[in-house]
Design a protein around this nucleic acid. Structure first.
Lengths: 195, 195
DNA sequence: CTCGAAATCTAGCGTTGCTAGCTGTTGGAG
DNA sequence: CTCCAACAGCTAGCAACGCTAGATTTCGAG
């Protein structure tokens, strides 16, 4: 039985090795550089080994994305406001910092057509966790608005800023002012209906 | 001289033919289906002809994207509020409708790594126009906030909603409520500083 | 030591974006 | 009217891609 165990352990290690190699390659040179040949080279196995671990290249990207969501959740969890600042701001800054410092990872998670199950039941726990952190950050400013809807709006705003910034479509110098304005808009004062 | 002219005219027509074919193919089957071979087939020329018009496939996508921006600008311009509703809402609805009904076009414009000049001088006029329409829609609710920054925030929010919706990451049933909430947050009431 | 199964690799398929170089057409010079 | 240079367009092919069939090596069980 212990031989079986060793084999399984080695297999799991290699599984993770592939994921790590893919992420590193993507972060260093972008996803275009992540070809099955280069990836196989990097882990020092031949191409078909990749396919004994993952159904295809997409599945590798998906695995990287899911672990990336775990990392994002961790970053959000440990983001606590300095005194005199809101939790909402701390979460927003942590989110945007993540998107900015790990653009390839962020791409795999939320930009590339990667079809992680989202709408349905089996959403990966990592994604639930990350969204949960956003919910917690939004809660103090919800007023009488629907919490989940407000979180989706918060997320959409952050995602929009992150992707447009990454595509150089927003003026970098105004990043702070934009964030300030976004937080101001989302946080305070209930509005009357029917504009 | 008229022979020269005829040649140039025919060339320009074929140029547009290629762009249209690429857009149609992308809208019908997604950008993955837009290969140089299929595109050449569709316009009934051989592959190398494409390269006498465009530097490469990227340049074709870019051309489609820029014309798409023109289309978006037109949609925004003709979006006028029904009575009792804000211009901001009319613009937001037109923007999201565009993103939703022409997802491939929207992808080429704002999602794919397509590197249209943005930050610098020579931004295509079509993009300036589209952004200008957003500015105009935001103006009535600016309060004393910076107009361009507020427009960037408005755009970011719309872009975030559009892309996350397309990726099935937001609950479709709550689309209306989310938009309502977004408009409410962006429109009214100046907030005090320093959260 | 031998054997069979499991693990791993070599080699190759079909498709991609792109290009070198041949071929047939055509408009202007003589 | 003839010729020919210039050019438009095509055929064919390259290197790199994701992926896989089938040969080969490895290694524990008997």
């Amino acid at each position: 039985m212990s031989i079986q165990n060793r084999r399984e352990r080695e297999r799991a290690e290699r599984h993770q090795l592939i994921i790590d190699a893919a992420r590193e390659l993507a972060e260093e040179e972008g996803w275009d550089a992540v070809t099955t040949r280069r990836l196989a080279d990097k882990v020092e196995y031949s191409q078909p080994v990749l396919y004994s671990h993952f159904k295809g290249k997409d599945a590798i990207v998906r695995a990287v994305a899911i672990q990336g969501a775990g990392e994002l959740a961790r970053q959000l969890r440990k983001a606590r406001p300095e005194k005199g600042r809101s939790r909402l701001r701390a979460a927003a800054e942590a989110y945007l910092k993540f998107a900015n410092t790990r653009p390839a990872l962020y791409d795999a998670m939320f930009v590339q057509r990667v079809d992680i199950p989202f709408g349905t039941d089996d959403i990966p726990q990592e994604l639930r966790d990350a969204f949960g952190e956003l919910v917690a950050a939004v809660e103090p400013v919800r007023g009488d608005r629907d919490l989940e809807t407000l979180t989706e709006l918060f997320w959409s705003t952050l995602h929009g800023i992150a992707t447009l910034t990454h595509g150089k479509r927003l003026r970098p110098a105004h990043h702070e002012a934009r964030l300030e304005m976004a937080l101001g808009a989302l946080s305070l004062t209930q509005q009357e209906d029917g504009l």
